[in-house]
Design a binder for these strands. Sequence first.
DNA 1: TCTAACCTTTACGTCAACGTGAAGGTTGTG
DNA 2: CACAACCTTCACGTTGACGTAAAGGTTAGA
Lengths: 158, 158
Amino acid sequence: MTVVRPTTEPDPAPPERLLRINEVAAELGLTTRSIRYYEEMGLLAPAARSDGAYRLYDPSDIERLRFIKRLRDDAGFSLAQIGQMLEDEAARVRNRERLAHTTDPAERRVYLTEAEERVERQIALLQDKAGSLAAMIADAEARLTRIRAGIAELGDDR
Amino acid sequence: MTVVRPTTEPDPAPPERLLRINEVAAELGLTTRSIRYYEEMGLLAPAARSDGAYRLYDPSDIERLRFIKRLRDDAGFSLAQIGQMLEDEAARVRNRERLAHTTDPAERRVYLTEAEERVERQIALLQDKAGSLAAMIADAEARLTRIRAGIAELGDDR
DNA sequence: TCTAACCTTTACGTCAACGTGAAGGTTGTG
DNA sequence: CACAACCTTCACGTTGACGTAAAGGTTAGA
């Protein structure tokens, strides 16, 4: 697999606009308070601050927040659990810095391998939850079967 | 007060012992406070009260509580959501009475059909949640694939 | 009948996950 | 440069889901 590297860099990258907290909140359907609270709890840190200390979020922050919201709303995890799933934020920031400032394959490999392990742990937790949900569905379906058997029985001895 | 053991009577009927709140709590791994709170919130009502107003729970109450606990712990539903899933408790009590006091197939059919509908709604809600969980797992697996592709890429161009 | 171990209701305390000001600084558009 | 519309950091309020203690009644065994 050979990736073609353009010899002259015409910067095809998008403008990479940083969003302020209210824009992020509106896009994700969160409140600014929640976002700040998640930061307090160590779930994320904005990519940057403006000169006047405004929080500025990059696309990966948005992704992270979207993931947090789904964990909270869809899976029903507590923020503490989510924090464990997202793992050490400080390590993430350090890794982001290192990845941005190095082209050394060895270092990049370290970052990516750590990320791989984190995602694997996430999947394990999600699958655990999905498993117990599946068990509940199976239970409910069994009850449904019993109820329908009762109805059929009534129908038989009419 | 000697308990008669009539050798002549095979006693096919189960003892149908009613449990007090602490016995129920111990068996289910809940606190008595939680059980009383669920009652306050309208999630269940004990089958009976003793002369001295002790709460007395029958097997179907235990089943219901076990279900509540699983919805709370495994699926992460709020008590309000659980209340919706369990639907109108008063209707359940009325139906229990009616089912106990009638052998009329038509009436029994009404009770069972209502139960069927309730269980079907429960299953729908659970499957909805399971669906979004599955989507999250798929997402995570996609990210995992991307990360592994990145690692492979590093391995290739060395 | 007495007593320990239950139970009752009432009521205030706690913790997570925010909501809601207050008091003031920042941005960018006219 | 004025000013509305953002943003900042406190800091206290609220809601859900209980914990915990108080003051007293109930049960069952010795």
